[in-house]
Simulated assay, not measured.
Amino acid sequence: MPAPIRARRLARLTLLAVAVAGLPACNTLSRLSDVGQAPQLTRIQDPQAMPGYTPVSLPMPTPLPAERNPNSLWRTGAKAFFKDQRAAKVGDILTVLIEINDQAQMNNESNRSRNNSEGMGLPNFFGFESQLGAILPDEVDPSNLVSGTSNSGSTGKGGIKRAEKIELKVAALVTQSLPNGNLVIQGRQEVRVNFERRDLVISGVIRPEDITAQNTVSYEKIAEARIAYGGNGQITDVQQPRLGQQVFDILSPF
Rank of each mutant, 00 (worst) to 15 (best):
Y219Q: 13
F128G: 05
E220Y: 15
Q214K: 14
L243E: 03
S203F: 07
V205T: 09
G77R: 03
L23Y: 08
V170D: 09
Q240M: 10
V174H: 04
E190I: 02
G148A: 15
R242D: 12
N180F: 05
N27Q: 08
G244S: 04
Q239R: 09
R197V: 00
I5G: 02
L64N: 05
E129R: 06
M50A: 14
F128Q: 10
K161H: 10
N101I: 10
T175L: 06
I235W: 09
V174R: 04
S57M: 11
G121V: 06
A223Q: 15
S147C: 05
S110Y: 14
L23K: 02
A11P: 09
I98Y: 07
P123C: 05
I185S: 04
S252N: 15
R6E: 14
R43S: 11
V174P: 00
D34M: 14
Q189L: 13
Q245F: 05
P253K: 06
G36M: 01
F195W: 07
A19T: 02
P179Y: 05
N144L: 14
E164A: 12
K79Q: 15
S154T: 06
V18C: 15
V247D: 00
G121M: 07
L10V: 08
L145A: 05
V140W: 03
K221T: 04
Q45Y: 01
P24W: 01
E167M: 09
P55I: 11
G181F: 05
P4Y: 12
V140H: 06
P70E: 01
A3N: 09
L200E: 08
G233E: 01
L58Y: 02
A78R: 07
S110C: 00
A225V: 14
G121Y: 07
T28Y: 10
N144R: 14
R162L: 12
E167N: 14
L13E: 03
D249G: 04
R6D: 12
P59L: 02
S143N: 13
L16M: 11
N182I: 00
P63W: 01
G159T: 04
S117L: 12
S110Q: 15
A172N: 05
N182T: 07
A171K: 15
E129D: 13
N144Y: 09
N215D: 07
L41R: 05
T236R: 08
T149C: 03
G159M: 04
L10K: 11
G156M: 05
Q45D: 04
A25H: 02
